[in-house]
């Protein structure tokens, strides 16, 4: 494999690391507590990532022994342990290499780590075919791994989109459709919606941003009564919409905990994409959640 000149940052469920630019997520499931993600290059699956937060860990060595034995038994693999591909600060970490006993099929560089601060167990695997040299990539990828946030925010980065949300919110849905990325995060009854639609110029060819949002919001934010004004957002033409929930919340605000709504929507002309960042939250969380729109990276 050719030497990687530029690297992208991948971020999912609080785990971030560097990857070659054409590696991206193709499959995922689970929650922040326990889950799985797979990244692939244009030809094959490359990275498999698993994370968990075990309730009780005896020692890291015991966990590493158990995991490597399980892997060797399940896959009929020869395991070379302690390959020292990476050392992570503040974590117990071991890297090892798996090769098939019969010499056929892909091998892998693996890493297992447990964070001393947050207790998160992360297992990462990079698959490579015979003759491929992914060792430099594995060294960089494993070495750049972070498994928790340092400022209370989880960075999400995939498909050239990058944003951050508070680490307390849970991913409710992530939809990847042609031209659109759509993430919804929830915290109790509060929610954050982050999305990207492309290409912006084509979507806005026959309509204005306001009209487009009206038709978009008719389905998506149908329970919200909002009013909007034009605004410059991140240096791009955009809309700022504020509002409240329709219905009982509006009629009896003292009985129902009122949620406020704010949506910022803009057309990044550099990347030619439409971005939106919407918050529906109670007063106690609203300002904190709404400030995260600053963390949406619409262009480099």
């Amino acid at each position: 494999m050719a030497r990687v000149k530029e690297w992208s940052r991948f971020g999912w469920q609080g785990i971030t690391f560097d990857v070659p630019p054409d590696w991206d997520v193709t499959r995922f499931y689970g929650t922040r507590r326990k889950g799985y993600a797979r990244l692939a290059d244009p030809d094959a699956a490359r990275v498999e990532l698993r994370w968990d937060k075990p309730k009780r860990v005896t020692t890291f060595e015991a966990v590493a022994d158990r995991v490597t034995k399980q892997i060797a038994k399940a896959g009929r693999l020869a395991i070379e342990r302690h390959t020292h591909l990476a050392q992570l600060e503040g974590k117990d970490c071991e890297t090892f290499t798996c090769r098939p006993l019969n010499g056929k099929g892909p091998s892998s560089y693996d890493m297992i780590s447990i964070c001393r601060e947050c207790g998160r167990l992360v297992m990462a695997r990079i698959a490579f075919a015979p003759g491929e040299n992914l060792r430099p990539i594995a060294t960089r990828l494993f070495g750049s791994m972070q498994d928790h946030s340092y400022d209370g925010a989880d960075v999400w980065a995939a498909y050239q989109a990058q944003f951050a949300v508070p680490e307390t919110v849970e991913l409710d849905q992530a939809l990847i459709y042609p031209g659109s990325l759509d993430f919804r995060f929830v915290y109790r009854k509060d929610r954050i919606d982050v999305g990207r639609l492309a290409p912006g110029s084509m979507i806005l060819r026959k309509t204005t941003l306001q009209d487009w949002f009206r038709s978009f919001a008719r389905k998506r934010f149908k329970k919200i009564k909002y009013e909007g004004r034009e605004a410059e957002i991140k240096g791009h033409p955009g809309l700022e919409l504020t509002g409240r929930l329709k219905g009982l919340g509006a009629l009896a605000p003292r009985l129902v905990r009122r949620q406020r709504y704010l949506c910022r929507l803009w057309h990044c002309d550099v990347s030619d994409k439409l971005y939106f960042f919407a918050v529906l939250a109670r007063r106690s969380n609203f300002d904190r959640f709404a400030a995260y729109y600053e963390r949406v990276v619409c262009h480099q």
Partner: peptide
């Protein structure tokens, strides 16, 4: 047509 990178196009399509 829609200026997507290949991986995003593949997964979404």
């Amino acid at each position: 047509r829609f200026k997507l990178n290949y991986r995003e196009g593949e997964v979404s399509l």
